[in-house]
Nucleic acid binder design. Structure first.
Lengths: 340, 340
DNA sequence: CGGGGCCTTGCAATCGATTGTAGTCGCCAG
DNA sequence: CTGGCGACTACAATCGATTGCAAGGCCCCG
């Protein structure tokens, strides 16, 4: 490996003290019990030799890896980039590193992936892949491992979750559409197995009632992808030909809706308005530019990491069950006044 | 932490052997020196108790972390999702985990980020952030750490690199344009400090000569982002009003070009053709759908991980200096016959 | 019947740090 | 002169595995 690595023993010998003394001198916690002059000498030697503590040796003794695991349902989804960036940034300032694991959505690899991370003895875990009922999360929590959920949440109320405020987000969209004059609005829902799918669906219904929307049919897509969005929107339009707007539960579903709406002979924006959710990169460049709810994903990552670090530092403190981050609305050309 | 964790000592006691024997029985390498019956007994006990070796203890002794570090210049760039996915997938099959570090492109944090990873004693490193002259990569290599570059490469020929074949990619675009009838083609180049910027630029010139392109002006953008692409394309069009096509060095530059071309009063595709490079997600939905070179990024990640694992397993074998992955062309509506 | 060699297993050192406990030294009071 | 206290520092155990070496048992052959 790296030749001539400097160990604590080297520092101790060079400074003329025992390794235990050198250790205490180097550790801010225990520095106070060591003679200040000795501390200075050890520090100087450590600096001069370029001493770096061996993380494995330290971790073995202290039972900490200074490592956090993160489980992503699909790294290729641009949604997760900003979350990862936020998490990584926050962790880095506290000296923690981020171990990434990707669950292939095709097979259910989440079990092995989570176990692999747990076996690495990470100090905590951030789960971006929660299902509403998620035994993996419960198991981790039962084992006493600090865990937080991000983006989506399970029913495990004991595990903190940092998520977007779907009720507020759908509210932004619905108020926008109602303000434009829409009263017959359909919802392309995401899978009810995820909190985002279910939450946006419930919010849709609630806002529809509150805002006096006459007609508010819902069709549920089997996944948050484009083709299901296409199929479901077709069905929605066939069954409810008078709809003037479609609220999709995410951007990809909305892109599917774009296609279905076009094929049905409507102009998006003019004939039927369509909205997305998440506002992933490039939604301003699709045709027409998509009106979508924007969720502060980077901030979400930062928050999740912060909460996790708190839990790691002090596992007793009572933590918030959930934090809802307030979204904003990016209004673009896929929404307009309804056709008369 | 987790209560009652099972250690090797527990397994040994339960199986009635010494820990060293248990260790050997559990390790496929050394299993052969242990009595088959003993092996079976130890295996059974380990299985029954749910024994999991402690990675830190093992790593401390064997000087391996079974961990690989990856340095990403910008996690939010959708380009890197597939690369990460590929790397993670390949590493996982060999029991390695992936430590992610993001270099904020704003400050030069690459030094500290790389050092942080190195101090964690990763068994190898994958660098996606190489500059053409990159002292960090050299330093790692000099320290004897297995390193591979991905996507971009530095001038360090000793360090393997898995990159897209830019010469072939630009060739695809140029042949496509020339076939359509274009003879006056401009290039929006990326920064010459990156191998991708320089390589595509040189390839552009070479193919222009080879294919008989009359006019082949180049302007270099300061970064691979949209606004620089916009500014540079404006300049390109002003100085060369007869251009009928623009080859951009990546998709974002091409989107900038879209805007500049529109503002100059041309229709993209009809008036001036524009091509992108990378074909990140959603390029098929921009207006007009973008013709772009598609690079097999997931495969790139898999290859990089494979090469790195080989280097880790056997640091002596001679490795390829560089592997060029063949791109394909996604032909869409941003390219068409030139205006007459 | 004794010794050499093979197969198997145990002993103990080791990786590099942290930390509880014991010991040393100087100084002051009795 | 001695006991005791305070301030430091050294010793050694420990975390959980791996591994070189030695030792034990057994068989076989001379």
């Amino acid at each position: 490996m790296v030749i001539g690595r400097i160990t604590l023993k080297d520092v101790a010998r060079e400074a003329g003290v025992h390794t235990s003394t050198a250790s205490r001198a180097l550790n801010p916690q225990t520095q106070s019990v060591v003679n200040p002059e000795t501390v200075a000498r050890v520090l100087e030697v450590a600096q001069r030799l370029g001493y770096r503590p061996h993380p494995l040796a330290r971790g073995l003794r202290t039972n900490q890896t200074m490592t956090v695991g993160m489980v992503i349902p699909d790294v290729e989804n641009p949604l997760f980039g900003p979350i990862i960036a936020g998490v990584e940034h926050r962790l880095g300032t506290d000296g923690y590193s981020l171990l990434i694991a990707n669950t292939d959505p095709r097979d259910d690899s989440s079990l092995t992936v989570i176990d692999a991370l747990a076996e690495r003895r990470v100090d905590g875990m951030i789960i971006a892949s929660a299902s509403r009922v998620d035994e993996h999360i419960r198991r981790l929590h039962d084992q006493g491992l600090p865990v937080v959920q991000v983006n989506r949440m399970s029913n495990e109320v004991e595990v903190p979750a940092i998520v977007g405020d779907d009720h507020a987000g759908i509210g932004l969209v619905m108020e926008h559409l109602v303000e434009l004059g829409h009263r017959r609005i359909g919802h392309v829902a995401g899978p009810g197995t995820f909190s985002t799918g279910l939450g946006r669906r419930e919010a849709f219904l609630e806002w529809a009632g509150k805002l006096g929307v006459h007609e508010a049919p819902i069709e549920e897509a089997e996944s948050f992808r484009m083709m299901p969005g296409y199929r479901v929107t077709r069905r929605l339009i066939e069954r409810n030909p008078d709809l003037t707007a479609i609220v999709a539960a995410n951007d990809l579903l909305a892109l599917g809706a774009y296609q279905a709406v076009s094929e049905a002979g409507f102009t998006i924006g003019q004939g039927i308005s369509v909205t997305g959710y998440n506002d992933v990169p490039f939604m301003q460049f699709v045709q027409p530019p998509m009106t979508a709810v924007r969720v502060p994903y980077r901030k979400m990552g930062v928050e999740a990491a912060s909460v996790l670090l708190e839990m790691i530092a002090d596992s007793e403190t009572v933590r918030p069950g959930a934090v809802w981050l307030t979204p904003t609305l990016s209004v673009r050309e896929s929404t307009a006044r309804p056709r008369s």
